[in-house]
Structure formats: structure tokens, C-alpha cells
């Protein structure tokens, strides 16, 4: 499919986007007041063709509201918005042909029908040409290893199988943009790995633009060259993942198990945060190398075991929110 983009060449263009909700709050049995809740405000960003963007933030930060505006489900209160050169809420049906959307927590497949039948109906709904439908189906079913499951009713599929089915369903019409909402939630480690591998391939071979919301740091690290962090309805960070760590002042942790109990370890480049019997926790900047610290500890102490904990993205993000 030829890609459509707005005047400045961006596939997704969001400028000064606002969305407020009116919430009625009961004050007494019969009276209520209307509160304006701001879900998204002053949100500006753009996404280019072929990018893989992680869209993250705590619950209630405005992630879902943004995705719903980008896909035409919600009408923005104010601001401008263009996806694939279209106004999502006004040109929803046209936009739908350019988008694939996968919700990790619910399925868009038909519960009582075999996967094969759900896919067949989608071909009719999207009016994909039979040849392209067949080719895409064959390719994705192969890549996601769904061949044996095509005749199984969706209700009998496991979560991981159903998720793969949902992803095929979202891709059969060759969308240029794929939105994924918590795509790996509830999946086991192997399924997660497979899914990430598949998404990378999709992006590399078809230049499909990916935007995913997730709480899983590994999803972001495995897939996203770029992260947008949203809090209280506005973007607080937009850039490469590596910069997020620097900006968030994030740290990695070296866990040291000594042979015997000892006072707090003191080595250059790291700070001892915690001592618990023979075990000690040392933290050091995420962008620094662990090697010299490990060497220094091993040289000065009798070490039984060592391990390194990667920074928790939630902590990094929390750090950013607090500034």
C-alpha cells in the first residue's frame, strides 16, 4: 500500500491536543456537580513512517485516550490531529483501512467461530483482494505458527494463541500503522519473545510503523527506538530509550553475595544502598560500565556470587515525573 502522510511528511501528527471529560459527581442524594477532568492536554508529537514508538506512562496518564483519538474512537476537545493524512474522527472508515489495532486484553475475533472463518469475514469487511488476503494469511500464519489452529474455535484457544490470532487479524489488510495496547500482557516468556521477533520482522520487511503502549520494559527495549512518556495528559519525555535512562538519572544495581558478613563495601563509581547479612546492593549509573566495579569488588572482597539488576522502567519514569 502506498503510504499517505500529512503535509510535513509525518505519518502521525499531533499538535496541542486536548481532551477533557465531564464527570458527574454526586454530592447528595439528588444533587450532583459536573467536574471537568483533563485527560490529555498540550500533547504534541509526530511519528515518521517505519518508526517503532513506545508510548508509556502510568495508569490514567492519558495513554488510552490518546490512542482512542488517534484511531478515531474519541473526538478531540481541541488541537489538531492527522493520521495517514486523515482526520481520525471525521474520516474514521477511511482511516480504518490504514490501521491495525491489537488490544492485549480483549479480542476482536468471533468467539464461536474457527480462526479461519474470522479471517474470512475480515477479508470481506476490508474488501482486501482475495490474492493479497491469501498471500498475507499464508505468510502470517507461517510466521506466527498458527497453521494447526486455523480450524479451532477462538474460545478454545489459549491466551497466547488468541493473541497471535488477533495480530494476524489486525494485519491482513496491510495496515501502514499498527497500534498495540499491552501486546504481551499475560503471555509466557517464550510467547513474548516470539511475538517481539515477529514485530521486528514486520517492521523491517514491510516498514510497518509500530506504536505500542506497554508496562513491560523488555517490550520497549526489544522493539522501540523511541519512547514517548506521558504523564498527567502531556508528554514529559520524547526520545531514544538510552536518553531516558540518562535523563531519569536511572541506576543499575550490583547485588553482591559475600562469603562472610562485612561492613558496607566501598568501591569507586558505586554507592552501597543496602546491607543485609552477607548480601549488599550497590547502585551505579545505568550508562556506566559494570566491569570496573565488579573487578574492584572482586579484588577487595571474598565474593560468593554477583548479579546485576537492570533499571526498572517504572522507577525511571517515576523519576522523570517528579521533576
Amino acid at each position: 500500500m502506498t503510504s499517505t502522510s500529512s503535509a510535513d511528511g509525518s505519518l502521525i501528527q499531533v499538535r496541542d491536543l486536548h481532551r477533557t471529560f465531564t464527570v458527574r459527581r454526586k454530592t447528595s442524594r439528588f444533587r450532583g456537580v459536573r467536574d471537568e477532568v483533563v485527560a490529555v492536554h498540550d500533547l504534541t508529537f509526530s511519528v515518521e513512517v517505519g518508526e517503532m514508538v513506545g508510548y508509556i506512562g502510568p495508569n490514567g496518564a492519558g495513554k488510552s485516550t490518546t490512542i482512542k483519538m488517534l484511531t478515531g474512537i474519541l473526538v478531540p476537545t481541541d488541537g489538531s490531529l492527522s493520521v495517514a493524512g486523515l482526520d481520525p474522527s471525521r474520516q474514521r472508515t477511511e482511516l480504518a483501512r490504514h490501521l491495525g489495532v491489537v488490544f492485549g486484553q480483549r479480542t476482536t475475533l468471533w468467539w464461536d467461530l474457527p480462526l479461519r472463518d474470522s479471517f474470512a469475514v475480515l477479508q470481506k469487511i476490508y474488501r482486501t483482494s482475495p490474492e493479497r488476503h491469501r498471500a498475507n494469511l499464508a505468510e502470517y500464519v507461517e510466521l506466527l505458527d498458527l497453521g494447526d489452529l486455523l480450524d479451532t474455535p477462538v474460545r478454545q484457544l489459549s491466551l497466547g494463541q488468541r493473541m497471535r490470532g488477533d495480530i494476524v487479524a489486525a494485519l491482513l489488510h496491510d495496515p501502514e500503522i499498527l497500534f498495540l495496547d499491552e501486546p504481551t500482557i499475560g503471555l509466557d516468556v517464550i510467547s513474548k519473545g516470539r511475538l517481539r521477533e515477529f514485530l521486528r520482522t514486520l517492521n523491517a520487511e514491510r516498514r510497518t510503523t509500530l506504536m505500542l503502549t506497554t508496562h513491560d520494559l523488555q517490550d520497549i527495549e526489544a522493539l522501540c527506538d523511541r519512547v514517548i512518556v506521558i504523564d498527567h495528559g502531556t508528554a514529559v519525555f520524547d526520545g531514544p530509550l538510552a536518553d531516558l535512562h540518562t535523563q531519569g538519572g536511572s541506576t543499575r544495581t550490583l547485588v553482591v553475595d559475600l562469603v562472610d558478613e562485612a561492613p558496607a563495601i566501598s568501591v569507586p563509581g558505586a554507592v552501597t544502598r543496602r546491607v543485609e547479612g552477607p548480601r549488599q546492593w550497590l547502585s551505579f549509573p545505568a550508562d556506566a560500565s559494570a566491569a570496573p566495579i565488579v573487578a574492584a569488588v572482586a579484588a577487595a572482597y571474598d565474593v560468593a556470587d554477583l548479579s546485576i539488576q537492570e533499571p526498572d522502567i517504572e522507577d525511571v519514569i517515576r523519576e522523570i515525573y517528579q521533576r
Binding site: T71, L99, T108, I125, Y126
Partner: peptide, 14 residues
């Protein structure tokens, strides 16, 4: 309530 209407918004049909 179940979010199924949201999924319908994503299909190219009225």
C-alpha cells in the same frame, strides 16, 4: 461497557 464498540470504530464500516 465491554469495549466492543471501540473495536467497531476500528473497522472500515459504518
Amino acid at each position: 461497557r465491554t469495549g466492543r464498540l471501540d473495536a467497531m470504530f476500528l473497522k472500515p464500516l459504518p
